[in-house]
Amino acid sequence: MKLTLKVWRQKNSKAKGELESYQVEASEHMSFLEMMDVLNEQLIVEKKSPIAFDHDCREGICGSCSMTINGSPHGPQSGTTTCQLHMRKFKDGDTIVVEPWRSSVFPVIKDLTVDRGAFDRIIQSGGYISVNTGQAPDGNAIPIEKDLASNAFDAAACIGCGACVAACPNGSAMLFTAAKVSHLNQLPQGKVEQTRRTASMVAQMDKEGFGMCSNVGACEAECPKEISIEHIARMNREYVASIFGGRKS
């Protein structure tokens, strides 16, 4: 299949950047990234600068890959990361626009590579259970209801790719933050520091400069792990509770 790609090229974080057009010959069995590899090979042979993009596991779990394809983070197939998107989802002769995540909190490093350090800082602000190695009681000491564990897992399935921010017209990171809050707050082990965690992670999220959720639902629609905005509702609830119900500090 012959494709026209319009790819965002930006030399570094300070450069302006623009879309550039390329022709590429692909097979429908290729993954989207393999198609990008083919294009890069082509560019290297022509001694041009290849397109920089983050990628690693290519199994849809590391969360590295981050391309906005025809306006959709990770492209047209729902529940799928860029690396698992295959070219059979496109037609011969298609024009495909490939851009980086768009958010002022994720500055472009080069071409399609962005800096998602804000996510790490949100986790550092409270996305953990404070337990030192060796302090743990027996794994079966606290039974956890099967459905509850499963619900916590749904939230914990987040791969931290940032598609939610890229999809959100407000550039909000609520789905990412809520997924972590919801994962940990639901479990009995995480309940202990729920108040502090929720308040602190929301504060960090705001400090990073992410936008505010207006319940559009684009994050949920584009999330490659299909994480539900129910988790955002839980975080909202627990945030209000953490502020009004928490201790006076």
């Binding site: 025809n70 306006g71 959709s72 999809a167 639902g217 684009a218 629609a221 584009e222």
Partner: peptide, 8 residues
Amino acid sequence: TAKNKADV
């Protein structure tokens, strides 16, 4: 950004 066509 190209137009996002998410089902919202």
